[in-house]
Simulated scan of single mutants.
Amino acid sequence: MSLAIVITVVVVALLFDYTNGFHDAANAIASAVSTRALTPRVALAIAAIANLFGALLSTGVAVTIAASIIEPPSGARGLAVVLAALVGAIVWNFTTWYFGLPSSSSQALIGGLVGAGLASHSEIHWMSGVIGKVIVPMIISPVIGLVLGYSLMIIALWALRRANPHRVDRGFRIAQIFSATSLALGHGLQDAQKGMGIIVLALVTAGYQSDFVVPVWTMLLCATALAAGTYSGGRRIMRTIGRRIFPLRPVHGFVAEATASSVLYLTAFVVAAPISTTQVMTASVMGVGSTRRLRAVHWGVAREIGLAWVLTLPAAALIGAVAYPLALLLVP
């Protein structure tokens, strides 16, 4: 098996992590920037550093991606499957980034894997993997974010009902530095592992390792790629999350970030499920916004985001399936 093909897959996987970074950077910093707790450049630097360290905290999600979704054929055809899956995810990431839609990089990667798997007649673990470890957590996690964000916001409003509004805003702007950092750490914990999982799947498929243990060099490369992508921006999506869904105040931003962080840590450490940071943060913003009144949330924007979520899996799967025969041309 040509080492050059494996290196190509690793490089494309790092490109996916990079696009994941600039696509999803807005999740961690949009509310902090919107409430002026942080300037965009400082917020991006904090998010990049936190993503870097978060990526080194666990490998449970990476193992889920590598071992529980598909079982590609060994050798060159298997590497073509992995490469086509990455192409599907990257193309969809660029498409939704261009239109400023906060779609899920996680769903895009899973969709790419499934599409390439179907095109190659690979074994797909539908019930135990795709449905049990991906789709169910991805449906439940934003619901938890919505309900928990709403509940915590109600508690915060009641606790602060007699407080001075200016002091509250000042205090929560400072608190948002920590909550945004925590969310970025959770984003690194979740999203860098998807690239790690793909690289491990490629190494196993090519016969370079026999188990699904994530090598240290893979963790470091994926963490660096995600951090670099995070620092490069994501301003289009930042406007959608930070302003278009609901006009956030510092207390709203803090509660939404704290809520999303809690869900990310729970799913990464407890169930090792690859959930979407984008979905969880967006749902949390909707939850805190709904406490003011339902009309305060721009539900038309929410419908656009929901449509992107619904389309992500099948669209990335279609791209992955189309990319598979092209990827075959690159392998001997």
Rank of each mutant, 00 (worst) to 15 (best):
V251Y: 08
A184D: 10
I7F: 14
L44W: 08
F22E: 12
P142C: 06
A67V: 00
R295E: 15
L15T: 10
A175I: 12
W158E: 14
G115S: 09
I110T: 12
S58H: 15
G115C: 10
I90K: 12
Q193R: 10
I305D: 06
T259H: 12
N51R: 10
V114I: 15
F212L: 03
T39A: 14
I110W: 10
D211H: 05
S31W: 02
V251W: 06
S104M: 10
L248V: 08
S179I: 10
H23Q: 13
R239Y: 09
D17Q: 02
F22L: 14
I65D: 01
A13Q: 03
A108E: 12
L248W: 05
I241F: 05
G195D: 04
W92S: 09
G145H: 09
A273C: 06
Q209F: 04
A62H: 02
A116L: 08
I245K: 01
A85H: 06
D24Q: 04
V214N: 02
G117K: 10
C222P: 00
R239M: 09
V82D: 04
V61Y: 05
G229S: 03
H121S: 15
A225F: 08
A43L: 11
I140K: 00
I90D: 13
S122G: 09
L248T: 00
S276K: 09
V288A: 07
G149A: 12
S120F: 09
M219L: 14
S106F: 04
P274C: 09
W217N: 09
G306M: 13
L14E: 02
V61H: 04
I49M: 12
I198E: 01
L311F: 15
G253W: 08
V285A: 06
A32V: 13
A25Y: 09
N20S: 04
V251T: 13
T312A: 09
N164A: 04
I237T: 07
V10R: 01
D191M: 09
G112L: 11
P247I: 01
L83E: 02
F172Y: 15
T282G: 03
P73K: 11
N93A: 06
V33W: 08
I124T: 13
A184N: 07
V271R: 04
S58G: 00
L57R: 02
A30K: 03
I135S: 07
T291V: 15
L15E: 05
M127S: 15
P165C: 00
W126I: 14
T19S: 12
P73D: 09
T277K: 05
V87H: 05
L313P: 11
R173E: 11
Q193N: 08
G233K: 07
L248N: 01
L152A: 13
L266A: 15
V280M: 11
A67Y: 02
I90G: 08
W97F: 14
M286Q: 03
W217M: 07
A296P: 02
A89T: 05
V310D: 00
R36A: 13
L146N: 02
G100S: 03
V130Y: 13
G229P: 03
V200M: 06
I29G: 02
I49N: 00
T267P: 01
A268E: 03
T277V: 14
G287L: 12
V130E: 13
V204P: 04
I177F: 13
E304C: 00
L157K: 15
R293L: 02
V61R: 08
A316G: 10
F16K: 07
A26W: 11
L294K: 13
A327T: 03
V136W: 12
K133R: 15
A180I: 06
G149D: 07
V87S: 10
Q190Y: 00
